[in-house]
Design a protein around this nucleic acid. Structure first.
Lengths: 333, 333
DNA sequence: TGTGATGTCGCTCATATGAGCGCACGATTG
DNA sequence: CAATCGTGCGCTCATATGAGCGACATCACA
C-alpha cells in the first residue's frame, strides 16, 4: 500500500493548482478535514458526501498533491530533524542530534548541546546503567538541567581541569547527577593532567580514584566531548605548553576526546600524554555500548569528522554549523 | 477504523510536549517523514527501524498528538473552507462558497465573487446545460474571467439596467460567455424596469426577447445576485423613485433578487413591480435545479438570510464579512 | 463517421491498519 | 512476600485501503 508514489518524492515547484474549480476544491478541503483532522474513514466520508470510497481517495490524493492539505514535520524546539538524519546516515552513527542554533555564541551553543545531552540521558538511561561522565566546558552548563534520572551508578571518567572552571561547579554537577539518580557516585577529585607519570601512578592508587577507575570496565553509557587541536577548542590543548601543542600537531594530532589524541584518519596518536592523565582508556571506551560525544561550533567539524572515524562514538550531539561542514566534508570523500 | 479518537477533536492548548526525549522525538520525526511525506507503509518503516508495526503506529500517533506532525488544510487563494462549510450547513444549501476578502472595498469584493462564480460555472456546467445569467453589478466584472465553458445555451434572464452600467459591457459579457461556450446566446436587449405594464407586455412579445423568455423553463443553472433594500445594494432599489422605495419598505421588503422582493421571512412580496419588469419568474426560478446567488458585503447579510429562506437558492457565493453575520444571525434563532 | 488516445469510475483482491486483548514486567501497597 | 495495579508490547482478526483492471464516456483528428 504505497501512497502517492512519486508525487511527494519530487516536491512540487509551488502549489500546483491541479484542482478544477471552487466546488471541487471545497469538497476536497471538506473531505480532507474529515479524514486528516477528524480521523474519519474514507468509507464514512464517502457515505456522507454520497460518493464511492474510491472517489474520496482520489479527491484526497488530489488535495495532497494540490497543496490543499499541507503536512509539515518539524520538531518543537531546537532539534533539526533533517540534519540529524543526514549526519546519522553519513557517519554511520546509531544516533545523531543536531541542534539548530540561531545564536553563534559559543556559550549558547554549549548550553544547548549540554541541555540536549541531559535530556537524552534522562531518556535513554535505565536502571542499573553505569554512566560515565567526562564533561569539560561543553557539558558543564547544560548538564545542570539534569533533573530526572533512573537509579544509575555515576562514574566520573576523567580528572578535573581546574585552571578554567571552578572546581565547585564540576563537583556539584557530579553530585547533583548522583542525587537525582539516587545511585552511587564515583567522582575523581584529582587533576586531569599531571606533571609526570609517577604522580599519575600514585593518584591512580588513591582509594577514591581507583574506585572510580574500577568501574570503567562496566560503564554502559558515557558522555564525552570532542575538541579540535587548537586554542579554546580543547581543554587538553589549552592545558599544555606551546611546545607540546606544536609537537603533537606535527605528529598529526587533529582532534582530542577525553585526552585521547586522533589524527586525520581517526587513528589514535600515542604520546607520552597518556601516562600522565587520569582518564578512561580508549580500549575501555570502545567496550562501552553507548558513547555520546558532544561538540559544537563549525570550527570543530574536522575534529568531529576525525574522531568519528575512530569508531568510538555511537551518538553525536552537535550544532547545525558543525553538522553542515561535517556533511560537506563527507560528501567530498 | 477511527484514528486518534478525541485527541484531535479537542485541539490542544499549545504543542503539548508529551514526548519523552530527543531520541524518541527524532525517531518520531523520522518515521513521520517516511510515513506522511514519502508515503511508506508502517510495515516498511517498522522494518527499517527494527520495530513492530504497532510501535510505529504508536510513535506516529504520538508525533501527531505532540505537534511534531502538523496537518493544516487551507485552500490556496481566497476561499474560506471553514466558513463555507458552516454556511452551507447552517443554511441547508447544496453549496456555499465564502471568499475571504482581505479588502473591504466593495468593488474588490464584487470582482472576487464574480470571479469565483465564473470558476464555478466553468467547473459545474456540462454540455447541453442551459445557463441563465442575470448579472448586475456584482457579476459584471468578475464574469469577464469566464474563459472556458462547455457547449451551453446561454440565456439572459433579465433586462438591462442601463443607468449605471454601460450597455456595451453587459452585451459584451453575454456574447463572450456564448463565444467561449460555443453555444447559442439569447440576450435581452431591453431595460430591466419599464415605466408601465403595457410597455413590458409589448416588449415581451418582441421576437428576440420572447425567444429568451421561452428558454426560462428549460434553464438548468442560473446565476443571480441578491441585494439589500437600501441605497447602493440593489439595482432595483436604486432604479426606483424614493416614494416607491419607501412604500415597498413599509410593506416589509428587505431583500431583492432578480427584481423579486422578499420580506424578513423569505416570503415574496407581490407588488405592481412584477408587471413592469423583464425577468424570470420565481416559479421558473424554483424549477431550476441549480440557482447560484451572489451577494457580498456585511450589510447584505440580512438580505441574504431573508432570500435563502425562500428556498430558491441552492448555492450561495458570498464574502467572509457577510458570512459571519449570516451565521451569527442564524445562531440566534 | 470511425478510431485510437485519454480520462473517469467503481470493481476485485491482496495488503495495510487499528481496536481490543492478553501477556510480561515493574512499581506500589498490604 | 503476595496481591494489585499500571504500563508497554505485540498478537489476532475484522475492517479500511490502494493497485490494477476493465467498462464506459469523451475527445481529437482523420
Amino acid at each position: 500500500m504505497r501512497k502517492h508514489n512519486g508525487t511527494h518524492s519530487t516536491p512540487p515547484a509551488a502549489d500546483e493548482q491541479q484542482v478544477k474549480g471552487p466546488a471541487e476544491m471545497l469538497l476536497a478541503a471538506s473531505a480532507a478535514r474529515r479524514f486528516y483532522l477528524e480521523g474519519r474513514s474514507k468509507v464514512e466520508i464517502a457515505e456522507e458526501f454520497g460518493l464511492s470510497r474510491f472517489k474520496v481517495a482520489r479527491i484526497l490524493d488530489l488535495a495532497r498533491d494540490s497543496g490543499i492539505v499541507r503536512i509539515d514535520i518539524r520538531l518543537p524546539g531546537r532539534i533539526d530533524a533533517e540534519l540529524s538524519g543526514a549526519v546519522q546516515e553519513a557517519c554511520g552513527l546509531r544516533r545523531a542530534i543536531v541542534v539548530g542554533t540561531p545564536s553563534d555564541d559559543q556559550n549558547d551553543v554549549r548550553r544547548q548541546l549540554g541541555s540536549v545531552a541531559a535530556d537524552l540521558l534522562t531518556e535513554i538511561a535505565k536502571d542499573d546503567d553505569v554512566l560515565g561522565l567526562a564533561w569539560g566546558r561543553t557539558l558543564h552548563t547544560g548538564l545542570a538541567e539534569l533533573t530526572r534520572l533512573p537509579q544509575c551508578t555515576i562514574v566520573q571518567i576523567n580528572g578535573v581541569y581546574s585552571q578554567r572552571i571552578a572546581n565547585r561547579g564540576v563537583v556539584e554537577t557530579v553530585q547533583r547527577a548522583a542525587d537525582v539518580s539516587g545511585g552511587r557516585a564515583y567522582p575523581i577529585y584529582a587533576p586531569l593532567i599531571l606533571p609526570d607519570p609517577d604522580t599519575a601512578r600514585v593518584l591512580r592508587s588513591d582509594p577514591g580514584i581507583s574506585a572510580a577507575f574500577a568501574w570503567f570496565g562496566r560503564i554502559t553509557k558515557a558522555v564525552v566531548s570532542i575538541g579540535a587541536w587548537q586554542e579554546g577548542s580543547s581543554t587538553v590543548y589549552d592545558a599544555l605548553d606551546p611546545a607540546t601543542r606544536a609537537d603533537y600537531r606535527k605528529r598529526g594530532v587533529r582532534a582530542e576526546m577525553s585526552t585521547h589524541l586522533f589524527d586525520a584518519d581517526g587513528a589514535e596518536v600515542r604520546t607520552g600524554l597518556a601516562d600522565r592523565v587520569l582518564t578512561i582508556s580508549t580500549e575501555e571506551l570502545r567496550r562501552i555500548p553507548e558513547v555520546i560525544a558532544l561538540a559544537g561550533g563549525a570550527e570543530k567539524a574536522e575534529a568531529i569528522d576525525t574522531v568519528l572515524r575512530s569508531g568510538l562514538v555511537s551518538t553525536l550531539i552537535t550544532d547545525a554549523g558543525a553538522a553542515r561542514r561535517l556533511l560537506s566534508a563527507r560528501e567530498r570523500v
